[in-house]
Amino acid sequence: MELFDSNTILAVMVIPMVLGFLLISPMGESLSASMSDKFPSLKTLRGRLLMGSLLIALSGFIISSMTLWISNTISEGAGFCAVNSIFSCDDVIGNDDYNKVPMIGISWAWLGIIVYTFFLWILMSINKEPNAEWVGSNIKLGFMASTAGIFAIIWLMYAEYQMGKICPYCTAAHMGNLLLIYGFWQMGKLYDSGEWHKQ
C-alpha cells in the first residue's frame, strides 16, 4: 500500500468520525475521563454528545468535499482511487448513470457537502448557545434531516449493487449520516428528559 493512496487518505479523514462515535457511544464517559481536564465540556453527557456529533459532521463534511474533488478529477480523465475488483470510488463517483441526485440533477457529492454543512450549522449553533430556547427544535431538525438521509443511503446502496462496485468514500459519508441519527436521537432524549439544561 502506498503511503498516500486513496485508502490511506480516507483512513485519516475517518479518524474524527471514529473519535466522535466513541464519544457519543456508551463508552464515551470512560474514554473521555482522561481528556476532561483539558476539555471540561466532556465531563457531561451533553458535552460529549455535542462534541462527538460535531466531530462526525466535520469528518462527513471533509469526506463529502473529497468526493466532489474526486468527481472533478475523474472528469479531467485522471483516476484517483486505488483499483480493486469491488472497491472503486472512481467507478461509482464517475458513473454518469448514478452519480446525480434523481430529479434534482446535482451530484451526490454536492448534496453531501450541503447536508453536512447544514449539520455543522445545527451542531455549532447548539454548542455555542446550548441553553437557548430554539435548541430543542434544532435537535429535532437535525434528527429529521439525518433520518431523511436513509433514503439517499438506500438508493446509493442500490446503485452500488447495480454497478457491482463499492465506493469507500461514499460508504464513510453514509456511516457519518447514520451515526448522526444516533447522536441527534440521544440529544433529543436528553433534552426531552429535562437533563439537558441541568448539565
Binding site: L120, W121, M124, S125, K128, E129
Partner: peptide, 12 residues
Amino acid sequence: ARIDTGLTVIAI
C-alpha cells in the same frame, strides 16, 4: 448564535 454560526459555516 444561529446567525453567527451561519456566517462561520458559510465561510467554511
